[in-house]
């Protein structure tokens, strides 16, 4: 399974990962032009601070709480790729925010204006999709410090007690 790994110590907080994420998830394919789009794309990787900058991003958990919390059934973990995402399934995201409430890492965001002026459609939850159409996720490619990397890791199995050993 593909996983993003983070070496936070080397992060300088340049936020190029955020810009690249916005660009990759915009229609224009460009972070500056993306600000004109409705809904305005949001970065799905977030630079937060501890003693220094720390990129926070979805870790596509083994047993994702966002998936268990999703009352529409749209948040799913792909059994082959391991990617956790709420789009591209039979069920549609209705913006109930249960996944945001459930995610321990705080890396899922609401898109408030996706409902449109008349709110006839739904706002949706936005999260890392590991850029399925790119060879390397946009944030990883953009990181000048090699803080972010993708690696192929075997999916851990649960031991008898149900914990990841």
């Amino acid at each position: 399974m593909k996983k993003l790994t983070v070496t936070a110590e080397d992060c300088t907080g340049c936020r190029r990962c955020e810009q690249a994420c916005i660009a990759a998830h915009s229609r224009a394919g460009n972070a500056a032009l993306a600000t004109l789009e409705k809904p305005e794309p949001k970065s799905r990787i977030l630079i937060e601070y501890d003693r220094g900058p720390v990129p926070l991003v979805c870790r596509h958990c083994v047993e994702p709480l966002c998936v268990s919390a999703c009352m529409a059934g749209c948040m799913q973990k792909d059994p082959e790729t391991g990617i956790v995402n709420n789009v591209g399934h039979e069920q549609q995201c209705v913006g109930c925010w249960m996944c945001i409430m459930a995610c321990p890492y705080g890396v899922i965001s609401p898109s408030y204006d996706a409902g449109g002026e008349d709110q006839s459609s739904f706002a949706v939850a936005l999260k890392c999709d590991l850029c399925p159409n790119l060879d390397t996720p946009a944030c990883v490619a953009a990181c000048p410090m090699n803080v972010l990397a993708v690696s192929d890791v075997p999916e851990p199995v649960f031991n008898a007690k149900g914990n990841v050993p």
Binding site: K3, L4, T5, V6, T7, A8, L46, E48, Y49, D50, V54, L56, R59, C61, V62, P104, Y105, G106, V107, P156, N163, V164
Partner: peptide
């Protein structure tokens, strides 16, 4: 505003292995 998971990211938290 800047209190987030970053503040606790060093430890193994919440039952999942930390990639950090």
């Amino acid at each position: 505003k800047d209190f987030s998971y970053a503040a606790v990211h060093r430890g193994p938290q919440f039952g999942q292995r930390s990639p950090y």
